[in-house]
């Protein structure tokens, strides 16, 4: 949006992009060793978790953190992505409509992802047109409604349980790592370019004062819907990749709990920035992992206390604090 190819290329070399590139470099390097058979799947598995956590946090950031609209319905798009991938694979087995068309799992995955993204865009555009008129808590509450409705639809098809499929298990983890890496690079590029474009300025203006933004020439209605659509499409991408990885989809994929997790990652990291969801996603993952290992019963308590502390005492999140204390870093943590 109003960002030419030349300008975009230049922006991708700005300091604000370094954090993302650094992660991509690490993920790629580990991938190279993994694909070459030099390391076990332990680290790659861990990094895939991180890619997904950061990926979904970034997807939600577009609407929540950049535009200031806190959506509790984001897991719906995540679930829709997973559901689409599952349906595509299942319809390629005997008796399904794709049976005999192709059994190539990469093709099926891409088809499933595209279907999920398309459905999410459709849903975001229609639901968004209605709920994005609401402000603050009213918007947030309305989006909770999405969770309920979709959960119901999903249980109808899935008869209340998990739907499983067979993704084809030759070199499964190697393939999965590659898909996750591609997904992460795409997500980072899109969200980064949103952040540093004219579109990003418009969203920031909407977040700070929507009426003032509109009067200053920002087409607030259109921008909000675009942001919602981009966020939804990226969530669907990750939902699809996640279902591929677990070879299944279930009601949990759509659950409000997932939506809340994504919100928490953004809040911990810091709102209004690109670095916030990246760092928030990583920290959320580390805390969750460690607590599940050492104090499994208290995992949610620990996370809850962290959230309360951050919101009460550091509402600007980790990135906000770091930028305030170490001015030099604010060029990198945009």
């Amino acid at each position: 949006m109003a960002l030419g190819l030349k300008e975009a290329t230049r922006k991708l070399l700005d300091p604000g992009s370094y954090l993302g590139w650094a992660l991509i470099a690490i993920f790629t390097l580990v991938g190279v060793y993994f694909w070459a058979g030099k390391i076990s799947s332990n680290y790659p598995s861990l990094l895939m978790d991180i890619m997904m956590f950061v990926g979904i946090a970034l997807s939600l950031a577009v609407i929540m953190s950049f535009a200031g609209y806190v959506s509790f319905g984001h897991a719906v798009f995540f679930g829709l992505g997973g559901f689409s991938v599952t349906i595509v694979f299942r319809s390629a087995t005997k008796g399904g409509i794709l049976a005999g068309v192709t059994s190539n799992s990469v093709v099926l995955l891409v088809l499933g992802l595209l279907l999920g993204i398309a459905l999410s865009i459709l849903l975001a555009a229609t639901v968004g047109a209605a709920v994005l008129r609401l402000r603050g808590a009213f918007f947030a509450i309305a989006t909770i409604g999405m969770d309920y409705v979709i959960l119901y639809l999903e249980t109808l098809v899935g008869e209340g349980g998990e739907l499983e499929f067979n993704p084809g298990y030759t070199n499964f983890l190697e393939k999965t790592y590659a898909f996750f890496l591609i997904g992460f690079i795409l997500t980072f590029l899109i969200v980064y370019l949103v952040r540093v474009s004219k579109f990003g300025y418009g969203l920031a203006a909407i977040r700070e004062d929507e009426d003032a933004a509109e009067i200053l020439g920002v087409d607030t209605t259109r921008y909000k819907i675009y942001a919602f659509i981009i966020a939804a499409a990226l969530a669907a991408l990750w939902g699809g990749l996640f279902s591929w990885r677990t070879s299944s989809v279930g009601p949990e994929n759509f659950s409000l709990k997932y939506s809340v997790d994504m919100i928490v990652m953004n809040v911990i990291g810091g709102l209004g920035t690109l670095a916030g969801p990246i760092i928030g996603g990583i920290i959320y993952y580390i805390v969750k992992r460690l607590t599940l290992i050492y104090v499994p019963q208290l995992a949610y308590v620990v996370m809850g206390v962290i959230v309360i502390l951050v919101v009460s005492f550091f509402p600007e999140g980790i990135v906000g604090i770091v930028n305030r204390k170490v001015k030099k870093l604010s060029e990198y943590l945009i």
């Binding site: 300025y201 418009g202 920031a204 700070e208 004062d209 003032a212 200053l216 209004g272």
Partner: peptide, 29 residues
């Protein structure tokens, strides 16, 4: 264009960014 009796700055954005947004979304948008 207008100013507001009750000022409406984009609080968390810099003064420069506030002003840039004016330029970006005006008649030359």
């Amino acid at each position: 264009s207008r100013t507001h009796q009750i000022v409406k700055p984009f609080g968390e954005l810099s003064v420069l960014e506030n002003t840039m947004i004016g330029a970006l979304f005006g008649p030359k948008h």
